[in-house]
Design a protein around this nucleic acid. Structure first.
Lengths: 142, 142
DNA sequence: ATTTATGCAAATAGTTTGCACACGT
DNA sequence: ACGTGTGCAAACTATTTGCATAAAT
């Protein structure tokens, strides 16, 4: 009964080896934003034997259980969009993606959040979810 | 030398029948946000004979020429993300997508735009592009 | 005439699914 | 033992690309 087990139980998911392994990996990963393939490769290099299909299935379940969030950054380069996942934490935040390095920076701005609520309300809607991504590049201090 | 021809010339694109047809269609379409397949189906029902591959190629060129904008709404439903395109107009705006009806509402908020610039700058970046999408649902007036 | 564009069909990439077997309770 | 989860390989979807032909200048 190790770390992560409790979260799985609470999410109504059977505690299986792949699910525990994946959850643990997400928890102690140095990089917060990972693609399904990243996870697949890392785990199998570490001796685990988990199929890519399972990774996708587990990630989908984790997302449904709100344990993680899924992002689809349309990296602007036109290439096929790949999804990435990050462990859910209580503090919401948005993302800035550097178009040159691919680096991802998180940020949170109360003013923007508040305006969003107001705008949705003004149109007769309530927000279910939202995604704000800024594609940026390092400033040239000219 | 009909409507749309000028834009194509200015974009450095040869004035071909498919390009003119597609641009015209986008200009007078009732719906502003269309997928490649939407365009393909509508045009071919109207007697045009344009391959889907050509639609994609032309849309990519239009996007590069800033004649249109491409959006990838991750409709939250988990399905494969399909891109949609809309004619570029000088006023920038963001989007609100109803998760129930799929309806797309556009909005623009100077306060949000301004904050974004400030945030990027504070992190040493400049904004290349950005995408703000709110997934919403009609408010239940309880 | 020459270059670029197009249509078709085949290729690609990410993700999903069917099925037989293995695992968790 | 029972039901769910997993691995593998095959299926799918949106999009891209190779190539021979057709247009545009």
């Amino acid at each position: 009964m190790s770390k992560g087990t409790k979260e799985l139980r609470e999410a109504g998911l059977k505690v299986t080896q792949p699910r525990v392994t994946i959850l643990r990996f997400l928890e102690q990963a140095q990089q917060k934003h990972l693609t399904a393939d990243d996870i697949y490769r890392h785990l199998n290099e570490d001796g685990a034997d988990i199929g890519l299909a399972t990774i996708y299935r587990v990630l989908a379940q984790f997302e449904a259980a709100q344990l993680i969030h899924k992002h689809v950054f349309d990296d602007g380069s036109g290439r096929p969009a790949q999804a990435c996942y990050e462990l859910a934490v209580d503090d919401h935040h948005d993302h800035m993606v550097c178009v040159e390095t691919g680096e991802v920076v998180e940020f949170y701005d109360p003013a923007i959040e508040a305006r969003q609520e107001e705008i949705a309300k003004a149109h007769g809607y309530e927000i279910v979810d939202h995604a704000l991504v800024m594609y940026v590049r390092k400033r040239t201090q000219s």
